[in-house]
Structure formats: C-alpha cells, structure tokens
Amino acid sequence: MKFEQRKDLLGIKELQREEIDQILDTAVPMKDIIKRDIKKVPTLRGKAMVTIFYENSTRTRTSFELAGKYLSADTTNLAVSTSSVQKGESLKDTIRTIEMMGFDLMIMRHSMTGTPHYVARNTSMRVINAGDGANEHPTQALLDMYSIREKKGRLDGLKVAILGDILHSRVARSNIYGLSKYGCEVRVVGPSTLIPPGMEKMGVKAYYSLDEALNGVDVINVLRVQRERQEIGYFPSLDEYSDLYMLRTEHLLRAKDDVMILHPGPMNRGVEISSEVADGIQSAINEQVTNGVAIRMALLYMMMGGAKDEIAN
C-alpha cells in the first residue's frame, strides 16, 4: 500500500514499513527547505488546513502550522477550550462546520482515545492525529524515527529504551509500533505503576531498573512526567521519581558509546532528565524540533496534494 492511498494518518500501528520509509524519505528534501534562506515552496498553494487541539500543545501545533506555511498552504488554528468538549455543540457538528468552510485537511489532538478515528469516519477531510489520549502520536514517532535514522544511518536492529510514564504515553506506543516494524529491540523502563500490562505480548521488555534497562542501548527516549500523576497516586513524589528515574550522565556509561538521547518535549529538567544529559553532545533534542517540521511537511505534501480521482497523465 502506498501511503497516499490512505485518507488519514491516525496511527503508526496500521502503517506498513514501506509507508514509513516513504514518509521518512520525503522528509529529507523537506528538511533542506527549512534550512534555506527562502523557506517556502508553492506546492500547496490553494490548499487549506486547520489545526484543532482539544488539549494544549503549542509546540506541536506550531510545528504543523509552520510546515503548512512552508509549503504555501493556508493554515488556521481553531481555538477550542477543553471544557467545550462536554457541553454545547457536539463534536460531529463542529467537524461538519469546519468541513463546510472548505478545509482539505484537519489536524486534531484530543485527550480521548479514538476521537480522531471517530472524526475521520465522519468527514471527507483528511485527518492527521496529533495525539489521542494514551493511544498514538504518529508524527512524534515519525520524527523520532527520522532523527534516529539520520544519526545512526539505519533503524534496523537498534536497541531503544523508552523511559518514563509508559501507561499514559502515546509517544511510547507510537514509537513501539514503529520501531518494532524495523526489528528494533524496544525496552520500556519506569515505575511499575506506570507500565501497562501486555508489554511482553507487544515484544517489549519492561524494566524497573534504569541501569539494567540502559545496558547496551543505542537510543534513549525520555518521556515527560506529568505532575498530575502523583496526585492520583501512581508514585509518591516527584523527588522519589527523580531519584529512581532521572536520566543522568552516569547512566549513559551503561549504554553504547554513541548513544543518542531523545525527548519529545517540553522537558522537566531535574525531574526526568538532568541538564547535563539534555544539553550534552549525545542529545538530539534540539534537532528533533527541526525534524518535526520536516516530517510534518512530508505528510502534508503527501496527503494534501493530489487529485481525488485518478487522472491519466
């Protein structure tokens, strides 16, 4: 299957490896554009996209908007307050209204799993999932994979540790689904209360000890810890969390010499990652941000251009 034959990008789960390759390959020339003086190509002139985020995330939304602007699409952000989810207009009506304004593509983030899937079923617009509940965040996983491939030259067979709150993390899930398609050895590490059931069945090894988990890994992907989790009682305090799971320079000795550090941002320095590691030479955290724009440009190009029906050439 070619990626463009899909109407929507809802998750990494359903993508085939060839489609991921195609997206990553397309992002390479896109990244060149970002580095030029004139950061604009006319490709998506006359196309319109809208970002609709039912959960705050300035950076992902900005990344999508900028990707659209670099490709000359018209981009709009629909401001929605999180509280409007439960009252007033139904989501279906909101989507219909947006569709009738003439948008070609919608980028949606929602705190509830499966909502982009529901929306995609109910609109002719193309839909990109910018994160749904604890399910998937496909563009983050794609940019993580792009960053790894760019630095390591390959994805196949790498050892990748994902560190933190796996239970609530869509970044972790999308990375697991993506990396598994390349035969990577994926490990997750975090407090036992934040590691969900079924990891082995996914082919993922779970660790509670940071030192053990990092043994010989090529990549460490550090997840953000949400302060709210403590209040619900998943762990006793952020201090104890940092004592056990904050990634520090000495931990890197366990990993491969050329280990690469990723973090989806925004970082809590001194909670899940120390400043030395975040700013160290092995960190690709800044590069991830640029790569995020490139990946999103690639997706917008692949999903927004094109005719609806096949026209002979």
């Binding site: 070619k2 463009e4 034959q5 195609q22 390959d25 397309t26 390479v28 020339p29 896109m30 060149d32 554009i33 190509v41 006319p42 490709t43 006359g46 490709l71 690639a298 190009y301 692949m302 251009g305 094109g306 005719a307 029906d309 096949e310 026209i311 050439n313």
Partner: peptide, 22 residues
C-alpha cells in the same frame, strides 16, 4: 534541481510524486 514541489500539475495527479533532494 528537484522541481517536484514546483510542478503546476500536482492537483491533477492521483498520488503525489516522490520528492528528491535538490
């Protein structure tokens, strides 16, 4: 030079041509 992103027939293509590096 890769001119894919500058083509004027992209909306006529069923699926997008692969972009390569310039």
């Amino acid at each position: 030079l890769d001119i894919t992103l500058y083509r004027d027939d992209l909306t006529l293509q069923a699926s997008q041509p692969q972009v390569h590096r310039t």
